[in-house]
Each structure stands twice: as structure tokens, then as C-alpha cells.
Design a protein around this nucleic acid. Structure first.
Lengths: 109, 109
DNA sequence: CTCATAGTTCGAATAATATCGAATTAACGT
DNA sequence: ACGTTAATTCGATATTATTCGAACTATGAG
């Protein structure tokens, strides 16, 4: 599911394995407006750096939110040069919680 | 959607209208293990009193959790005699957030 | 009317989160 | 090496939640 090819690039961050995904933690991570917005943008954009997604918010705040999202298994972050590229762990999420991500992302207003 | 017939029975509790449902609030309400369990039991049982769903937990704690669930629009509570009967606001939820409740309830482990 | 039952509300203690500046780390360009 | 950029970690503060006993409310039974 996760690409072992990229493992070395993702070393600095803990990306939990499927077996450690917890539904409550995923729902909690998505219950914050800032984090939900991050997920929506990543859904549209495919991938984005942290800087592209702050809405003028301090980096340290954003970093915190990204960590919550990573810990929940929603986002994976890989170092590419000096920036951190984030993307959704779509396949992993759909494998562990079928339909959940798509259903939440399909909600509007 | 909500039955006006029952309005008088539900007076003591504020049940938000569809227009006030907020996705983040719903996700937050479900991110607590106790509350998620309540929702799962209500899904199985159809309806239940508060007392039937406490797992030996204090009444005041349960009352708090039910309030969070009501405020999010997940649960409706009506006074019937001396007990409070709770049930899922299935139709309202499916109307406002199509598929969300079912998708979350279909997750296991 | 009195008592018991079912839940709520209040209040206080504890715990968990959020926010953000400052210091830190890492990788790149020159 | 040095400076720059990108983002994390640290630490402090503030906000918000959780928990639960005690007091309160409402309903029904006797």
C-alpha cells in the first residue's frame, strides 16, 4: 500500500501503519476547521507543501495540525529538498476505513 | 423532516434544525469512544434510555455526552414518562450529510 | 403528599488542545 | 562556509473538554 521506495524520504516523520489507524482519531483530526480545510485542499491539489496551505497562520500552528493529521494516518509527508510535500493517504484510508474519506470530502457547506 | 407532532415532547432539549448542522461538530461528537459507542448502540437498538447506555458511568457524565450528541444533531431525546428516550436523527443526518452516518457506522474494529 | 426513579444542571478539579513566538534542524544555493 | 528557506520542536499561555459528586427538576407510583 505505502511505497517502500519512499520510506527513506519519509524517515523524519512517523506515519502509522494501517494496523494502528483508529477511527476516533481520524474523526477527531477532521473535526478541526483548519485541518479539514487542509484535507480538502490536498484532495483538490493532490499534494502541497505546508507553506502552500497556511492561510497566513504561523508555521508552528500549521506544523501542529499537520502532525495531528499524520498521526491519524490521514496525511503523509515526504521531504523533497527543503520543502515538505504532503498528500492524502487515500489508499491506506480506503483500505482501513472504506468510503470514509470520500464520504466526508463529498460533504459541502 | 422532524415531526412537529413530537415537538411538545422534546421541549426540554434543544434539537438543532438541519440548517445549523455543522460537519466539524458532528465529527467531533463522534471522535469520543463513549459517544461513538452510544451511537452504535442506538443504531442497533433503534432507541434507548440514557440509563440503558451508561456502562456503569456516572449519570452526570453520560448526560454531558448525550448533550454533545444532541447539539451536533446526531441524537434526539424525548421525554416519555420518567425516562428519556434517545434515537438517531437518521433522516435529518442523511439529508444534511448524505451517507455520513452509515459510512461511519459501517466501520469496524 | 411523599417517595423513588431518571436525567439534568451546577461547580470544581483535572486533563487535553490550540496558539504562537523563539530556538532548532535540514537541505539547498552561492 | 554562510545565508536563506521550510518546517519542526520547545515552552508558555489560554482555551476548551472531561469527569463526577451534589443539588435540582420532573414524572409517575402508592
Amino acid at each position: 500500500m505505502s511505497k517502500s521506495v519512499y520510506d527513506s524520504l519519509m524517515r523524519p516523520f512517523k506515519h502509522p501503519p494501517l494496523s494502528e489507524f483508529v477511527l476516533e482519531r481520524v474523526l477527531y483530526a477532521l473535526s478541526d476547521p483548519v485541518r479539514l480545510e487542509i484535507i480538502r485542499r490536498l484532495d483538490e491539489m493532490g499534494e502541497a507543501s505546508c507553506g502552500e496551505l497556511d492561510g497566513g497562520r504561523p508555521k508552528s500552528s500549521m506544523s501542529h495540525h499537520f502532525r495531528v493529521l499524520r498521526d491519524a494516518g490521514l496525511v503523509q509527508t515526504q521531504n523533497v529538498g527543503t520543502t515538505h510535500m504532503n498528500s492524502l493517504r487515500r489508499d491506506d484510508l480506503n483500505n482501513r476505513f472504506p468510503g470514509l474519506l470520500e464520504t466526508i470530502l463529498s460533504q459541502h457547506d
